[in-house]
């Protein structure tokens, strides 16, 4: 039996189309029932230049599901782990003691403590992905600026986009090998 190839799920976000409307943030909150005051994704607005020569970039940000994840290394109980069939980084609430080591280790500030005491963050909506759906944020984006797929599949839309378009990642210097890519 041929070994099933492991997925490398990535998100590709086109900053030329993103309008910073926050629909991704609300869709995630609703889908994942994230408690008041907390969120798994957020939008960054960066303004460069001086009037009238200006550039604005909006970025929808979240856990980067890094291929080299400092949060997983920092976890003393094994609660933070990478899903075995993919690169999706998850937290097992039963094992999490809420020690916040991972919160401190994450360069993207993507993790937070739930009211119940365990750590939470973006799961790439794994429950949806397992059903063949896009993550909630991707599925709702009104400008269609977000793409989700398997980078190990050279034919996938995300692979093609990264081949064709200029892109960047956030804080690559930290060596995390992030899996959220921004088209510029």
């Amino acid at each position: 039996m041929a070994a099933k190839q492991k997925k490398r799920y990535v998100m590709v976000i086109d900053t030329l189309l993103c309008i910073g409307c926050g629909d991704c943030v609300v869709a995630c909150k609703m889908e994942n029932e994230v408690p008041d005051g907390l969120s798994r994704d957020w939008v960054v607005e960066e303004v460069q230049g001086e009037f009238p020569n200006l550039h604005v970039e909006y970025r929808s940000e979240r856990c980067n599901h890094c291929s080299n994840p400092p949060c997983v290394y920092a976890c003393p109980t094994g609660a933070s782990f990478i899903d075995e069939d993919s690169n999706i980084t998850l937290v097992d609430p039963e094992l999490c003691t809420g020690c916040k080591s991972c919160v401190a280790a994450c360069p993207y500030d993507a993790r937070f403590i739930m009211p119940e005491g365990y750590v939470s963050k973006c799961t790439f909506c794994m429950h949806r992905v397992n059903d063949g759906e896009d993550p909630a944020c991707v599925s709702v984006c009104p400008t269609h600026c977000m793409y989700f797929g398997d980078l190990n599949d050279p034919e996938s839309e995300v692979s093609q986009l990264l081949k064709q378009r200029q892109h960047k990642t956030i804080a690559p210097e930290t060596g995390t090998d992030p899996n959220i890519f921004y088209l510029t």
Binding site: C21, G22, D23, V25, V26, A27, K29, M30, S139, V140, C141, P142
Partner: peptide
């Protein structure tokens, strides 16, 4: 696709 406000 609903917008931010409709989603909320």
């Amino acid at each position: 696709r609903l917008c931010t406000r409709g989603t909320g």
